[in-house]
Amino acid sequence: MFQSIEHVKQALAEQQYIASDEIATVLFLAEKLGKPILAEGPAGVGKTELGKAWAAATRQELIRLQCYEGLDETKALYEWEYAKQMLYTQLLRDKLAEVLADARNLSEAADRLAQEEDVFFSERFLLPRPLLRAIRTETPSILLIDEIDRTDPEFEAFLLEVLSDFQVSVPELGTLRARHTPGVLLTSNNTRELSEALKRRCLYLFIDYPTVEAELRIVRLKVPDLAPKLARQAVELVHRLRSLELKKHPSISETLDWAKALVMLNANSLDRQTVENTLSVLLKHEADILRARRALETGRLTGDGGDEPPRPRPGMPYRPLN
């Protein structure tokens, strides 16, 4: 449990996660109010990383549910272990015969069997999936529901019950309540709009690309081998790339990959040749690379002759799925 917002920041920093004021405040509130956090923002700004850092900082288990289209309850919540049930029935056949041996007729045998059925529908045969695990763990845990926007709307509706009451009803067993309220972090890449009901239950956190200074701190922390001057140049160049109109803007993780690549290549300055050779680490679309090359040639990226102010990045569009 965090004592204060400064404590949150410090604990996250120990996990090598640099949290902005906003992130720290929201995280603190989420713990205090017991509410889930919904983190939205462009891909690769560290939303998932936040979940991992949160768990590590509070020394709790991280339970991760990766969402995809077609995810349903049996994969997210629980499933009966039919195979195990069958096996037990087979192995216990003798015992069953014994129990039923002195039954006078069929209905009495059925009654006796019914008395024993709790054996077969108990938590012993319940295969817990991430959601149930998060609720039933002995120690408090952090539940990371990653890329919630990829699921179907009906799964979202089903999540509502779990997230608002932290309880799950299993028809054969009754309602299972949470032993501890887990900390919940939902992430979304904004590929589709989430339902209002879900948003209403969450604290909303929009994580955008960090400022030059913040990103520089991240690079310095994660890739300490890169020379400070070079690191600054690299981060500034990434920021200029983000101001271009690209299909996919370079994310923080790509900045870090690039920084590592620069270390590997023993680069000591960001000349055009080096940048052009390593551009494919930052940009993942052919058209984007071409555009960046053109910008390089006109000197807009390296900062020489760039009188033109960078164009503001258009707001996050909801990208069509296809």
Binding site: I5, L29, E40, Y204, G315
Partner: peptide
Amino acid sequence: RDRFRIALRSTLIKEPQ
């Protein structure tokens, strides 16, 4: 004041726009 603002924003505002 800044934390107050974030407290209100994260609870009240759920759409980037």
